[in-house]
Amino acid sequence: MSVLKRVQQWATFARIWHVYDATWQNPFQSAELLKKYLMGIHKPIYHPMNDCGDHVIVINSLDIALPGNEWAKRVYFHHTGYPGGATWTLAWELHRKDPTMILKKAVYNSMDGNLQRRYTMERLHIFPDGNVPPELMGNVSNQIRQIRPMPKRLDHYTKEEVEKFPKIIDYPKDYILR
């Protein structure tokens, strides 16, 4: 292999680091999105037998949003292998114990159970908040767009913006402002 071809090979199979903000995102829909980046399905060179998956850093996994009443109803099953070793943990309990676990399991379960799955999971780095080690964040060169927009809360607007906002109605005279 000539020098040029070798460099071409490195360039084509270079691993890219992506960052994904999980704030207010459904972890199960996010998993379907992140899995494509982790396995390299988004690349035109993808083939199940070539190793072209990217790294994904997920931040703010503490702030994921489960749909409906799934915090109370979703159950994670674990069995130690010993008699009576079965445990059922509710999603909110699991999230309290480890805020990265729900997203991790969602991504793990979204992929087929083949030999590659464990190695693909090694490329997923989940952090409960925005504190990512700088040596990891330095690698990042792309941001994955969120699946749902993050609405801006009233207390996130500045006081000026709130005051400048157009008034639609006048309150009735007997309206009591709390």
Binding site: G130, Q143, I144
Partner: peptide, 12 residues
């Protein structure tokens, strides 16, 4: 761009 970036994170 600086990462993480709020503008790049917004869905299109």
């Amino acid at each position: 761009a600086e990462f993480p970036n709020e503008e790049l994170s917004r869905p299109l």
